[in-house]
Design a protein around this nucleic acid. Structure first.
Length: 290
DNA sequence: GTCCAGGTCGCGC
DNA sequence: GCGCGACATGGA
């Protein structure tokens, strides 16, 4: 069992449920957290159950990572690092939480939340974001599952639980696999494009580039447009951009515009003043709970 | 059959 | 720089 202490305020379950990522393979929701099949750089494929327990006061938490195989110290370090990345435990949200506290208009409930779950690599998240575009959530889940089931590495003797495929496996499968098996439709060539330039995506994971430059890099990938770029920026911890999608439009119409469909600019205007925390202000808008 | 879903691309103006 | 149709798929 790997234990990762997290200083509070930290709302583990609130973070996990902040968006739908936990329902995309190879994540699996479990009773008290999530299970994730991981492929370590040693090629070992393991199941990791990630849960959390309170630790002392101030909302401090200990994250538990329970792996179903014996790990070397190096492998354990790698597993812990991946979990830290997935849970964004290294992000400093204290300024955002301070703003929430000062407003006292419902945003207090956001304190401790906002560390939205992400995949171990930006490549995996880019594929998933591509699979969310111009389709339904049900189809997104199926496209991701078929990708994992068809191409992901599995532990010896356990073909049921697979990791997300490597870029090499995706490239080798080719666009025909994504068209015919994954049923990704016109997205098939774009998936291969992401795999072919996966090293560029990996570089962006801990890039210091200014957000507009980072955004340009993301937009240079075929299949990634303004919505996808903003979503991936959010997953990289750049919250200043707001991905206005059909869901954001529906939420804004319902909650702020009396059912009338607002222009995108009007939606952006709702969260003006949050600066680099714009996306979090939208995602954690108290109106979602109303 | 038609419309459209957590958009993107390429074209014409 | 903006508007518009096409794009695969599957469910309503």
């Amino acid at each position: 069992m790997i234990k990762i202490p997290v200083p509070g305020p930290y709302d583990f379950h609130g973070c996990l449920h902040g968006h739908g990522w936990m329902w995309l393979a190879p994540f699996t929701p479990i009773d008290d957290g999530f299970r994730r099949v991981l492929r370590l750089s040693s090629d070992k494929v393991v199941k990791a159950d990630v849960t959390a327990a309170p630790a002392g006061s101030d909302g401090d938490v200990v994250v538990h990572v329970d792996v179903d195989a014996a790990l070397s110290p190096e492998e354990a370090d790698e597993a812990a690092a991946r979990v830290r990345w997935m849970l964004r435990l290294d992000e400093d949200l204290s300024e955002f939480y301070r703003l929430c506290r000062e407003r006292a208009d419902g945003y207090e409930a956001a304190i401790g939340r906002g560390r939205l779950l992400r995949s171990p690599t930006l490549f995996e998240d880019a594929v998933k974001v591509l699979f969310t575009t111009n389709t339904t959530w049900a189809q997104t889940k199926q496209m991701v599952s078929r990708t994992v089931d068809g191409l992901g590495a599995h532990a010896p003797g356990d073909a049921q639980t697979r990791a997300f495929p490597t870029p090499e496996a995706v490239r080798a499968a080719g666009k025909r696999f994504f068209a015919e098996e994954v049923r990704a439709g016109y997205r098939a060539p774009a998936v291969i494009g992401l795999a072919e330039r996966a090293d560029e995506l990996a570089e962006l994971e801990d890039s210091d580039l200014p957000t507009p430059e980072l955004r340009k890099r993301l937009l240079s990938f075929k299949g990634l447009g303004p919505y996808s770029a903003a979503t991936l920026l959010m997953l990289l911890g750049r919250y200043d951009d707001l991905p206005v999608d059909s869901e954001a439009r529906a939420f804004a119409a319902r909650h702020y515009f009396d059912g009338e469909r607002p222009a995108d600019a009007d939606i952006h205007a709702l969260y003006e003043g949050w600066g680099r925390w714009t996306y979090l202000a939208y995602a954690l808008d108290p109106g979602w709970r109303a």
